[in-house]
Design a binder for these strands. Structure first.
Lengths: 211, 211, 211, 211
DNA sequence: CATGAATGAGGCTTCATTCAT
DNA sequence: CATGAATGAAGCCTCATTCAT
C-alpha cells in the first residue's frame, strides 16, 4: 500500500467526491479511505483544491481525446463522425462512471476552476462540434438549424445518464454497468441524430462500434 | 428587515446554493445576504439542512403540479400532452432558474433527502410519463420503443440547459433569460418528440402555448 | 395551567436542575417542561440565574427553619436536641428530594451565589451546631472533641443519601421513598450520636419523633 | 508548550471542572488555561465529553486500586482492613483534591457515563465493602447491622470533606492541605469504626499508617 | 400576562493545513 | 516519503435574552 499512495488518493477522492460532492468531502475522509496520512495529500497535490484540479484535467484531457479521435473521421460524413464521437464518449464515461458524475456535477458550480476548464476544454469541444454540424449542413446531410441548440441537445444526451446515475437505477431500474447499456443507449443517440438532425434518416445499420 | 425574514432567507439561500453549492455555502453567508441573524435560520428551519429540505419540497411540489397540469390533457393525444408538459416545465424552470439549477445539481448527490425525493416525486413523475408514452404507443402515435430510455431522454432535454446555465451562456452564448429562449428551446423539444418519438411527424404548427 | 405559571416553572426547574445540573439545563427545557413561554421565566425571575437564586433561598430558608426548630430544644439536652434536628432535616429533605440533591450538588461549585449562601445560612447553621456541641461537652454529655470535625461528620451523615440518590438506589438497592427509609436512616444517625459523640451511650429508646 | 499538551489539557480541565463544573466550563476555557489550541482537545480526546470520560476512569481506576490494596489485608481483621482502606482513600483523595471534588459532584448527575461508572467501579467497590463487613460480623468483630446502611455511612465519611472543600475551609476554617488534616480526619473515621461498627472498641492505638 | 420573532454571544466541533521528526 | 502533533479559521448550532404585540 506504500506503493502507489498517489493513485490510492486519487481513487479515494473520486469515489468520495462522487458520493458526497467536493465540498462535502473532507481531506481526512479521503486520507482514511486511501489508507494514507492526510499530510500526504498536501505533499502530492499541495491542496485539497489541487487534488480537484488534478481530477478535472485528468478527466477532460481524456474526454477531449475521445472527441478528437472521432473528429478525425469527419471526412467520412458528419453523421458518421458524430456517431463515432458519441460511441467514444459513452464508452469512456462508462469506464469512469464515478469520475464522470462528479465532474459533470461540479461543472455546474460557479468557480474559478470551472471557468478555466470551460474556456479551454469546452471551447475546444464546441469548436469540433461546430465544425461537424456545419459540414453536415453544408453537405445537406443535416437539416439547417441553430447550431448551439443542437450542441446543447447532443451534450445533454451524452451526459444525462451519467450525472443522474441514481435516478436511472433507482427510479427507471436501468443498470448502467450492464454490458449492453452502452450499446443500447447509443442507439437512442443515433436515433436522435437520424430523426432530429438528418434530413433523410440515414441507414440505421450504421456500424459505429463499441468494443 | 423585521418583516419577511423567512422569505429573505430562502431567497438568499437559493441564490447562494445555486452559485456555490449547498456544502459550499455557510449559514453565515446566507444570513449576511439576507440581512438577518444566523440564529434566525435555526429558528425557522431548525437547521441548515431543514432549509435545504424546504427548498427541495418547494421546488418539487410546484414542478410536479406543472406536470400534472399537462397530464390532464392526455385525452387530447399523447404527443400534444407531452408537449404541453414540456411547455409548462420549461416555463416554470425559466421562472426559477437559480432554484432549478441548484436542485438539479443537488439531486445528483447520494443523500437521505435525495433518496426520499426520488421515491416520492420522481416516482410519481415516472408514473405520468409512463402513462403518456404507453398511451401514445397503443394509439400508434408513437413508435414502439423502450419507455425508460425515452423518459431518460425527455428528462435530459428538459433539464440540461438549466443545470448548465454557465456553459450555455459562456460557451454557447445563448441567453436563458431572453424572452424567446423558452419558445425556441421548446421547438427543439417538439422536434425531438416529432422526430424521435412519433411515427409520422405530426404537424409542427402544434399550438402548445407558453403564456 | 395558566393558573400557576410560576410554580410550574419552579417545579420544572427543580426537576431538571436535579437531573442535568444547572448548567446542563436550558431555559427552553424548563419552559417546555412547564408548558410556558420562555420569556415568562424572564418575567418572573428576571433571569435563569434569578430562578436559581429563588431555589436556593427557598431551600435554605426552610432548611434553617427546621434546624432552628430543633435548636429550641437545647435545654432538654444536647444529644436530644441534635437528634431532633436530624429528624427534622431528614424529614424535610425526604419531602424535597429533587431540590435537595440539586442544591447540595450546586453548593460544591465556586460561585458568587454559593459564597453568599455560605456566609449567611451555613454560618448560622454552624452557630447552632457549635452551641449544641459545646453545651453537650460542658455538660459532659459529649466527649471532648474537635467541634468542626464533629460538625463535618454530622453534616455528611445528613446529606449523603440525598446527594447520591442514584448510588443509593442503583448500587445499594435502598429506596429513599419507601416510607421507613427516614426512620431507619435516622437510627443510624442516632447510633453515630450515641456511639461517637456521647461519653456513655444514652438510652437508645430516645423518643425523637418523625411525624 | 509543544511538549505535553495532553497533560496540560487534563490538568487545566480538572482545575476548571472542579471550580465551575463540567457544564460550566467551555472548551475554550480549558484550552486557554492549558495554553493549547482548542482543536487539540478534539485531537486527544475526540470530544469535550471524551475528556470527561478520561478524567472519570483516571480517577476510578486509581481509587479502586487503593481499595483493593487495603482489601488484601482482610485476613488481618475486618476493622484493621477497613481502617487501612480509609487511610489509603483519604491519602489518595488528598493528593487529588480537585479531581476528587469534581468527580464526586459529577457522579450526582443522571447521565450515561455515570451509570456506566456505577455499574462497574461502584459495584466492585460495594463488593469489597460487603465482604469486609460480612467478615467482621461473622467474627463478632462488628455488631450485626444492615450492611448497605453501613456502607453508605462509611462512604459519606470518606467523601464529604472533599466534596465540600469550600464549606470546610470557609465556614469551618479547617484546611485540607495542611499536612495533618489527613491524619486527624482519619482518627475521626477510626472513631466511627470503633464506636459505631465494632462491638468492643478495639484498641485505638491501631497503627494504620499514612505516609 | 403571554407570546412569537429576532438577536448576539458563545459553545463545540471539524476542517485544511503546516511543521518537526 | 511518511507521520503525528499542533494550529487557526471557520462551520453549525444553542443559548439566554429582549422586545413589540
Amino acid at each position: 500500500m506504500r506503493k502507489n499512495s498517489k493513485d490510492a488518493i486519487v481513487n479515494a477522492a473520486i469515489e468520495l467526491f462522487n458520493t458526497k460532492g467536493y465540498n462535502g468531502t473532507s481531506v481526512r475522509d479521503i486520507a482514511d479511505k486511501a489508507n494514507v496520512n492526510p499530510a500526504n495529500i498536501a505533499y502530492y497535490f499541495k491542496n485539497k483544491h489541487g487534488l480537484l484540479e488534478y481530477c478535472f484535467t485528468a478527466f477532460f484531457e481524456n474526454y477531449l481525446a475521445e472527441i478528437e479521435k472521432g473528429f478525425s473521421l469527419l471526412e467520412a460524413g458528419a453523421a458518421h463522425c458524430l456517431k463515432q464521437i458519441a460511441a467514444n464518449v459513452i464508452e469512456f464515461q462508462c469506464k469512469n462512471i464515478h469520475l464522470t458524475r462528479f465532474i459533470l456535477r461540479e461543472m455546474s458550480i460557479d468557480s474559478q476552476v470551472v471557468r478555466e476548464i470551460m474556456s479551454t476544454y469546452y471551447v475546444k469541444e464546441r469548436y469540433f462540434f461546430h465544425k461537424i454540424i456545419e459540414k453536415g449542413m453544408e453537405q445537406k446531410e443535416f437539416r439547417s438549424h441553430s447550431v448551439p441548440y443542437l450542441i446543447l441537445q447532443f451534450k445533454s444526451l451524452l451526459s444525462m445518464p451519467f450525472l443522474n446515475t441514481h435516478y436511472v437505477t433507482e427510479v427507471l431500474h436501468v443498470f448502467l454497468n450492464e454490458k449492453y447499456f452502452a450499446k443500447k443507449y447509443l442507439q437512442e443517440i443515433f436515433l436522435w441524430i437520424d430523426g432530429v438532425l438528418c434530413t433523410h434518416p440515414s441507414e440505421l445499420k450504421e456500424k459505429a462500434v463499441i468494443n
